[in-house]
Design a protein around this nucleic acid. Structure first.
Length: 618
DNA sequence: TTAGGGTTAG
C-alpha cells in the first residue's frame, strides 16, 4: 500500500461552497482509484457530493484512470466504481450518466467503455435523452462502429429523439466517417432545422470522396461559414488542386473578416491549399502573416514544398523551424527525409535517422517507409534493407520502396525476392510495385519472368497496366534484342502509347542498331514532344553508330533550327550538409576551386574504370 | 450537460 495523499489538513474542517474548489485540483491530481475513493469519501462527508461540478470532475478523473489502466481486472473495478458513483451522486441520474458517458466518449479508444456505460444506463432503467445519444454516437464515429451506431439510430427513430438537431448532426457524422454519403444526404434533407454544423458535416462527408460536391455544397450554403467549415472546404480544394475555388474562399474570408490570425487551423488549411495548388508565394505570405504557428503549420510548409519539388526550400524551412526551437514530429521527419532522398543528401538523412531514434519517433509506417526510400535513393541500399528488415510492420509502401530501390541499384534478384516475400505475407501489390518489379526484370534481362508479372497484374491483382508498365515491357523486350516483338507489343497496346514508350523503343534501337525502326519511333516522338532534347541526341547517335554521319548531322542541325539545347549533364555533391550542383560547362560555383580538385580526382578514378564520358565534369 | 476542423509515402 503506497502513501495516501493528504487531501486536506483537517478532515473535520467544515466544507462550504467556496471551499469546494479546493477539492477540484486534488481530484485532478489523484492517480488511482484508491485516491479517488478517498477524495470521494471526503466529499460525501463534506456533503459536497451533490454538487454537479465536482461530480463532473470526478467523472473526468475516472475516465482518465480508465484510459491509463492496462489490466482488464483493474479496469472492471474502476468501471463498477463509476456505476456506483452515478447512482450515489445526486438524484438526477440521467444527467449523471450523461456526464460520465460524455467523459468516456471524449477519450481515445474508449468505445467499449462508453458503450458499457450506455448499456448500464439502459439496464438500470434510465432513458437516454438528446444529450446521451450524441455522446454515444461520438464514440461510435470515432471507432467507425457502424453497426452499433445504426442501432442507436434505430433507437433514436423509435423514441423520436432523431428529430433533435444534435442527434441528427452526430448521426450524419457517423455516416460521414463510415463513408455512407447517401445516409448523410438523407439525414441532411430530412429536417428543416439544419444548422451550420449540419452543413459542415455534409461538406465533410463529401470531402472524404467527392471533393467537387464538397465545394459545391459550400457555395450553396445559406449560413455564414465559420473557421471549422472553412477548414473542411479548403482541405477539399487542396485535394482537388482547385486554386480557383480556393481563391474564392480566401476572398470570402476577407469579405466576412475571418482572418487567419484568429485560428491556426484555418491558417494551416489555407497554406496547404496554396501549396497543393503550386502557389508557393501565396502560401508563404499566409504563413508569414500567421501570428501563431504550430508544428502542423511548419509541417504543411515543409511537406508542401517537397511535394512541389522545392526540396531545398523545404529544408530551409526545416532549418528555420529548428532555429525557432520547435520540436519536429513524425510528419516533419517524413517531409525532411523525402527532401533528402530527392537531393541525395545522405548526411542530413542519417542525422534525421539518429534524431528519430533519440526522440522515440517510431520508425514504422510513414517514417520507416520514408527512411527506406531515403537510403535507397541516396545510394545506401544496405542501410535501406537494414531499416526495412527492422520494421515491425510493413505495408505495400514499405515493400514497394524496397523493391523500387533495389531495382534502381540493379539488384534485380533481391528485388524479386522481396516481391515474393510480400506476396507470401498476403500484401497486395499496387501499380507502383509493378513498376519496380518490371524494371527489375528489365535490368536483369528476365524476359519470361517480366512477361509473367505483367500478365499477373490484371489476371491476379485486378490492376490495369498504365503507360509506365507498357514502357517497362517495351524496355524489357527492347534491351533483350526482341525489337520486333517490342514493336508488336506497342501496336497491340489498348492505350495510346506516349513519349515514354516511343523513347524506350528508340533507346532499344540505339543498343541494337536498328536504324529504320528508330526512324519511325523518332517520327512519333517529334510529334509528341518536339522540344525534348533526348530523342534528337539518341537518333543522331543511332545514325553515327551506323556510320551515317550526314543523317546524324541532320538531326543535330534540326535541334539547332528548333532552338533545342542539350540539357547539360548535372551532378551534385553534399559537403558540410550543403548540396552543390554542377552542370556541364559551369565554372562559377563559389567553392569551385576546392570542388574542382575533388571532382578531378573522381573523374580520374572513373576514367580508370573506363566509365562513360558523361561522368566528366568541367 | 450535447454536435463539425489542419499536415505525412513508394
Amino acid at each position: 500500500m503506497g502513501t495516501l495523499p493528504t487531501i486536506i489538513p483537517n478532515s473535520r474542517a467544515r466544507f462550504n461552497n467556496s471551499q469546494e474548489f479546493d477539492v477540484l485540483p486534488r481530484v485532478e491530481s489523484c492517480k488511482s482509484v484508491r485516491e479517488m475513493k478517498q477524495i470521494h469519501a471526503f466529499m460525501i462527508k463534506a456533503k459536497a457530493n451533490r454538487a454537479p461540478l465536482s461530480f463532473r470532475l470526478l467523472c473526468a478523473k475516472i475516465t482518465s484512470v480508465l484510459q491509463h489502466v492496462d489490466l482488464v481486472s483493474s479496469k472492471e473495478i474502476i468501471f463498477s466504481y463509476a456505476c456506483f458513483l452515478v447512482k450515489l451522486c445526486g438524484q438526477n441520474y440521467v444527467f449523471n450518466f450523461n456526464s460520465i458517458i460524455q467523459s468516456l466518449a471524449s477519450c481515445k479508444n474508449s468505445f467499449n467503455a462508453t458503450m458499457g456505460m450506455y448499456r448500464e444506463m439502459l439496464l438500470e432503467g434510465f432513458f437516454p435523452d438528446t444529450y446521451t445519444i450524441p455522446h454515444v454516437l461520438k464514440a461510435c464515429s470515432e471507432s467507425e462502429s457502424l453497426r452499433e451506431g445504426q442501432q442507436i439510430h434505430a433507437y433514436s427513430i423509435k423514441t423520436s429523439l432523431a428529430s433533435n438537431v444534435f442527434v441528427k448532426n452526430t448521426l450524419m457524422r457517423l455516416y460521414a466517417v463510415c463513408g455512407i454519403i447517401k445516409s448523410v444526404e438523407k439525414l441532411f434533407d430530412e429536417g428543416p432545422d439544419r444548422d451550420l454544423v449540419s452543413w459542415t458535416t455534409l461538406i465533410q462527408g463529401y470531402a472524404k470522396m467527392d471533393y467537387s460536391s464538397a465545394i459545391d455544397a459550400f457555395f450553396r450554403m445559406n449560413w455564414i461559414a465559420d473557421e471549422m467549415t472553412l477548414v473542411v472546404v479548403l482541405s477539399a480544394c487542396s485535394k482537388l488542386r482547385d486554386l480557383n475555388s480556393g481563391k474564392k474562399i480566401h476572398a470570402y474570408m476577407d469579405h466576412h473578416k475571418i482572418g487567419v490570425n484568429l485560428d491556426v487551423f484555418l491558417g494551416n488549411a489555407l497554406v496547404d491549399m496554396y501549396l497543393k495548388c503550386g502557389q508557393i508565394d501565396f502560401a508563404r505570405q499566409v504563413f508569414d502573416e500567421m501570428p501563431t504557428k504550430n508544428v502542423v503549420s511548419w509541417n504543411s510548409m515543409i511537406s508542401g514544398l517537397a511535394q512541389q519539388g522545392q526540396f531545398k526550400k523545404a529544408l530551409d524551412m526545416f532549418r528555420m523551424m529548428q532555429n525557432m526551437g520547435l520540436k519536429p514530429d513524425s510528419v516533419t521527419v517524413v517531409g525532411v527525409l523525402n527532401s533528402c532522398a530527392n537531393l541525395g543528401m545522405l548526411e542530413l538523412g542519417k542525422w534525421m535517422h539518429s534524431y528519430i531514434n533519440k526522440s522515440y519517433i517510431k520508425a514504422d509506417g510513414y517514417v520507416g517507409n520514408a527512411l527506406v526510400d531515403m537510403y535507397a535513393k541516396c545510394g545506401s541500399i544496405d542501410q535501406a534493407l537494414e531499416v526495412f528488415q527492422a520494421m515491425k510492420r510493413r505495408d505495400v509502401y514499405s515493400y514497394t520502396a524496397m523493391i523500387v530501390g533495389l531495382a534502381m541499384h540493379g539488384e534485380a534478384r533481391r528485388a524479386l525476392d522481396i516481391f515474393s516475400q510480400m506476396l507470401k505475407m498476403g500484401i497486395k501489390p499496387d501499380l507502383v510495385t509493378f513498376v519496380g518489379v518490371l524494371s527489375a526484370c528489365s535490368h536483369a534481362g528476365l524476359v519470361e519472368e517480366g512477361r509473367r508479372h505483367f500478365e499477373d497484374m490484371s489476371r491476379l491483382y485486378d490492376l490495369e497496366p498504365k503507360t509506365e508498365h507498357y514502357g517497362c515491357m517495351v524496355d524489357l523486350l527492347g534491351r533483350a534484342g526482341l525489337i520486333s516483338e517490342a514493336q508488336e507489343f506497342i501496336n497491340k497496346m489498348p492505350i495510346l502509347p506516349d513519349a515514354f514508350i516511343w523513347g524506350s523503343l528508340l533507346a532499344a534501337c540505339k543498343i541494337h542498331a536498328k536504324v529504320e525502326l528508330g526512324e519511325s519511333a523518332m517520327e512519333k516522338l517529334v510529334e509528341m514532344e518536339p522540344s525534348r532534347d533526348g530523342a534528337y541526341i539518341l537518333m543522331s547517335n543511332i545514325y553515327s553508330s551506323a556510320n551515317r554521319w550526314r543523317d546524324a548531322l541532320k538531326w543535330r542541325k534540326e535541334m539547332k533550327k528548333r532552338n533545342i539545347k542539350k540539357t547539360p549533364g548535372c551532378s551534385s555533391i553534399e559537403i558540410d550538409g550543403m548540396v552543390h550542383e554542377f552542370r556541364k560547362g559551369e565554372k562559377s560555383h563559389p567553392r569551385s576551386k576546392e570542388l574542382y580538385k575533388l571532382l578531378q580526382v573522381l573523374t580520374h578514378q572513373l576514367r580508370n574504370y573506363g566509365l562513360d564520358q558523361n561522368f566528366v565534369w568541367y
